[in-house]
C-alpha cells in the first residue's frame, strides 16, 4: 500500500508584527510543519508500522526553505519526499485551493497512491478545501474532517469517523482509493528521534518542476488576487488591566467580586 501525505510548510506570525504592503513583514514570519499535516503524517506512519509493505511518501509545494519541514516528516518516519517548485510557482503569491489541488493531482497521477492523507486545513490560510478538491480532480473518493480511520491494505473500503459540530461523529464507509482530511487529535504525533533525524538526511527528497509533471503555465494561474491585508478591528471595547503583575491581578480580582462570581 502506498500512502501519499500532503505536507505544507506554514507561515506563523510573531506576537508583535508589522505589515509591509499586503503582507506581514518577512522578519516576523516563522515557518513550520502545518499542525494538521503532522497528524496526517503520524496516521500514515502508524499504518506503516501496523502493516507490511506500506510506503509513505510526502508531497510539498514549496521553495527550498521547506526542505527543513519536509525532513521533519521524514524524521518522523515517512519513507521519501517530493517537493514541487519553480520560478513560476514562486511568482504565484496566493494560489487558490483548486489551483493547489491541480498541482497536487499531477503528483498523484505520477505516484498512483492507494490512499492520500491531507490535513483538515492549514494554520495560515485555513481554506480547509485542498484535500477534497484534490479527491474530485483525481477521481478518488474522500471524507473531510476524519478523526478515526480504519483501513487494511488491499481492502475495498475504509471506515472513518467524521467529526461534525457539537460532539457528533458520523460513521462512514468510503470506497478506496480515497483522500482523507485528517483532524487534530486523531493520534499523538511523535517527536522525531535523534536516530530518525539522522536517517532523514539520507532519505530521498526529489524536486520536480511543474513542467516535469506535465503541468503548463495555464495550470499555474490563481483565481485569487490579494488586495489588502490589515489587522482586524476589535468587535468590543476591551478594558485592559494594566500595571505590574500584582496590580493586574488586583483589578481582575475586583472585577470578579463586582460580577458576583467570587465571594469577596
Amino acid at each position: 500500500m502506498k500512502i501519499l501525505v500532503t505536507v505544507k510548510e506554514v507561515e506563523e506570525v510573531e506576537d508583535d508584527f508589522e505589515i509591509d504592503g499586503n503582507a506581514v513583514a518577512e522578519t516576523y514570519l516563522n515557518y513550520d510543519l502545518n499542525e494538521w499535516d503532522d497528524y496526517a503524517v503520524e496516521e500514515a506512519v502508524q499504518l506503516g508500522e501496523e502493516h507490511d509493505d506500506v510506503e509513505v511518501v510526502t508531497v510539498t509545494i514549496g521553495p527550498e526553505r521547506s526542505d527543513e519541514t519536509i525532513r521533519q516528516a521524514l524524521a518522523k518516519g515517512a519513507d521519501r519526499a517530493i517537493r514541487v517548485w519553480d520560478d513560476a510557482l514562486a511568482d504565484l503569491t496566493m494560489p487558490d485551493p483548486v489551483t493547489t489541488a491541480k498541482l497536487l493531482s499531477a503528483v498523484v497521477d505520477e505516484e498512483e497512491p492507494d490512499l492520500v492523507l491531507s490535513g483538515v486545513q492549514s494554520d495560515d490560510t485555513a481554506y480547509g478545501a485542498t484535500g477534497v478538491a484534490l479527491a474530485r480532480l483525481i477521481d478518488y473518493q474522500w471524507a473531510a474532517v476524519v478523526n478515526h480511520l480504519e483501513v487494511e491494505p488491499g481492502a475495498e473500503t475504509a471506515s472513518v469517523h467524521r467529526e461534525l459540530e457539537g460532539g457528533v461523529e458520523e460513521l462512514t464507509d468510503v470506497d478506496l482509493p480515497a483522500v482523507f482530511t485528517i483532524q487534530s487529535g486523531i493520534n499523538e504525533p511523535r517527536y522525531a528521534s535523534l536516530r530518525g533525524i539522522r536517517q532523514a538526511q539520507s532519505k530521498p527528497l526529489d524536486v520536480y518542476e511543474p513542467s516535469d509533471l506535465g503541468l503548463s503555465a495555464e495550470d499555474l494561474t490563481s483565481a485569487f488576487e490579494l488586495t489588502s491585508l490589515y489587522e482586524p478591528e476589535s468587535e468590543t471595547e476591551t478594558t485592559l488591566f494594566e500595571g505590574d503583575t500584582e496590580e493586574e491581578a488586583d483589578q481582575l480580582a475586583g472585577l470578579l467580586n463586582e460580577k458576583g462570581v467570587v465571594e469577596g
Binding site: I19, A223, F224, L226
Partner: peptide, 16 residues
Amino acid sequence: REQYGGKVETTIDVAG
C-alpha cells in the same frame, strides 16, 4: 477572510 488564525484579515479579488 481571515488569515493566521485571525491575526489579520485580507480582501481578495476572485477572478472568473
